[in-house]
Design a protein around this nucleic acid. Sequence first.
RNA 1: GGGUGUUUAGCUCAGUUGGGAGAGCAACGGCCUUACAAGCCGUAGGUCGCAGGUUCAAGCCCUGCAACACCCACCA
Length: 940
Amino acid sequence: MSGKGLASRADGKGIEGSFDPGAIEGELYARWERSGCFAPTGNGAPYCIAIPPPNVTDRLHIGHAFQHTLMDALIRYQRMNGRCTLWQTGTDHAQIATQMVVERQLLAQGTTLQDLGRKAFIDKVWDWKHGTGGDISRQIRRMGSSVDWSRERFTMDEGFSRAVMEVFIRLYEEGLIYRGQRLVNWDPKLKTSISDLEVDSREEAGRLWHFRYPLAPGLATDDGKGYLVVATTRPETMLGDTAVAVHPDDERYRSLVGKDVELPLAERRIPIIADDYVDPAFGSGCVKITPAHDFNDYEIGTRHGLALVNIFNADASVNDNAPPAYRHLDRFVARERIVADLDAAGLLERIEEHTLTVPRGDRSETVIEPWLTDQWFVKIGPLAEPAIRAVENGDIEFVPRQYENMYFAWMRDIRDWCISRQQWWGHRIPAWYDDAGKVHVGRTEAEARLKGGLDDAVALRQDDDVLDTWFSSALWTFATLGWPERTPELERFHPTDVLVTGYDIIFFWVARMIMMTLKFTGEVPFRKVYVHGMVRDAEGAKMSKTRGNGLDPLDMIDGISTEGLVAKRTANMTQPQMAADIAARTRREYPDGIPPYGTDALRLTFCAMASQGRDLAFDLKRIEGYRNFCNKLWNATKFVLMHVDGVADRASPIEESPADRWILSRTRKLAATAHRAIAAYRFDLYANAVYEFAWHEYCDWYLELTKPVLFDEEASAAQVGAARHTLLEVLATLLRIAHPMVPFITETLWRRLPKGNGTGDESTLMRQPFPTVDALPDDPEAEAAIDWLKTVVTGIRTIRGELNVSPARTMDLLLQGGSTRDRELLATTESLLRRLAKIGNLNWLATEDEPPPASVQVVGDLKIIVPLAGLIDLEAERRRLHKEIDKLAKDLRRVDGKLANDGFLAKAPAAVVAKERDKGEALHKQLDALAGQLSRLHAL
RNA sequence: GGGUGUUUAGCUCAGUUGGGAGAGCAACGGCCUUACAAGCCGUAGGUCGCAGGUUCAAGCCCUGCAACACCCACCA
């Protein structure tokens, strides 16, 4: 190393105490934000990530914290690499979720949506949004996320709304948005349609009711019965039945096809039809058909021209199409009544327990009703095709790859997207109706009139519906950058580089972004999709309010008392009966609450756990280890600053030791690993490499290796200077490499270091260059020397450990055998060896000399001999040797087995064979040495 | 019913093109050694889910099976 890395300005302030995250984080973030260093700067190649916009209703949860850590690591890394970096942030208006939140608040205040009226309600929502609704943005700051706050967007801000309207109009004009009457998923609680994706199918225990439907007079089945048996899980829908279906090949019923049954209770006559859909083996082989309330039956109804009888109101109470006895009853009340009435009429054959999949709304959790309504749809086929191609041809890559299969499977079987919602909060559909019910679409009412040739005298009424929230989120990457305007930002940062997201919204969001972005910009929205797993609790269970197993990232950062945690977990429970259990478990699991670990420790934990493509079980125990790591960095820096004071003189000559050269070469390997890991989105490997290097190479070995020099009064100024320079240079390099994961502590420590060793903006580590591999020396010779030293020192320590010799006690050391190379290596490392292993006298024994009673370790050809006199317990040493010999003998048997195998010799590559031979020889030598030693001990 | 993933030390997970099974935490033993007890030194622990196959050689490739997890799907 030359002296060039280090500077003349050493502030030499030093640091005290230990790592205290609370004392550094808040102030530091504020300083970063004020200084504007989150905004894109410079002429580097652009690098852009669009944040998955959290809902305005969200509070920062562990999933956000995880995701934001990964994004921030990527952003900070690329910023340090000199890229012109934009992390585009913002929030989503979260149509249904937000309306529910504000509606609940109104209810608590004793008023309702209807009382307020549409306009006043929307004003209320905006008020809420400007108040507590934006908390999530403030919380994101606590994670250290370096987003560009000056460009924060909202999916209902003015510009974004313009983009949404523009997209709607253009799709409508192309015929890709249409309005029509269809059977849709209807949420009777929210009284709105929802898309297929918003329906969760869950297995639930239910029943299968078998009813008798009497045949029309004069008819009978083959076996003489006057009725057909139909089975249903939903008795109430029978009021809307318009047929009974059998399989066309079913001999039992062939003669009845085309005839009628009497629909009980409704007192209607409905036909018996034949359709392939029916499975003759299931139940009686007869199926009741309710086209207005079942998706399959709707299809069958269409095929057979059946009437649709809608029997439900919007809240799923029975309507006036049903017999008077059932009108206005809730669907589940009606069910009971109908079963009872059929039973009374002798038409209930039997009831079976039955597990069925029940469709529930993902927001309301209520049972979804297929219901016939007028809705707006996106004709999705033409949009899906190019989106499939973009992934097929590699324009977009998923990491890990397997998620592409999931994407393809869904996209190739995609169905039209119902985008209208019967709600108030959201983007209102830009369509107007005249008195005749004719629809006029335009960006504004005026445009709609103009296009429809309507003058002001014609009354128009705007469509009441709003758009699915995902319709606007689909435009996120380009609308946030200014589309439909061709802004410089759009030119520069689109397509974005990578989308970091969970697999749970691949269909909701990722797929739709790809479709919409290709359609409107002709570009992909992002080149890569990094799909991360979901954060679960330590046992692998989903974190949920109901389970009371959630962990708030802010509580891990700031700490929380046991009772604070209990209060949090049991507040506002939907199932209050769980509260006692949750409180008890929380007190058991967190008897001392959660200590404040700080943001860096949390971030490092997330990085280390970000394995590919699977969920992660978040165990709080992990974070403690990474907090300790931060403290380790703190203390290492404290040590360095104690010694670099006055290093500043660049002109002084320095003389690097093998240890100095070794750690620099190892630093080069670290940089290489970091670059490679980040490029592959292997945050776990990146975190592990930094941890391993900092703790086990830099601290455990290098710092210790500098002490013999720093504390040696006879060491030359050049030697001491080299150690100081290297300590500092490697620390500065390490801080830069670690910074994207642990920004707060690295920045804090870096500020204390003497400056002048970077090429970036000296005021912040954020703008220092990320170390390049080429700037660091590759020094295999030094690595070999220190590896040798480590092996010898470890051998001696093992002897100490096994024989319980105090580390404080100085021991003598004899060496025997060994190659010329061993003698060279000893010569270069002897002073280090003496110090690290606490060696007194050190002598070579001639090969033929008989060693004294001793404990022996063998390294290659070299015997490390620690004379036993007065040190040990012979029996313990014999046991140790036996164990060692057994282990080596086992290895040797395997090697010999290979070498005795002709197939191996003939077919394995020469290098592999040679390696085995060398291994065998080494094992033989070691075994001989240990066996000799053992026999000598027995002779004592 | 179709599909994907997982199965490696007590726990959480690495293991790159097939070539001597690894880390962290937990456990055990010893240390307040001049940055750090949130620390230091050392030790122990695994028939790599099961059964076959390919290969000189399998944690890794192929086939089958099992368990678990998730995604999709119209069995009343």
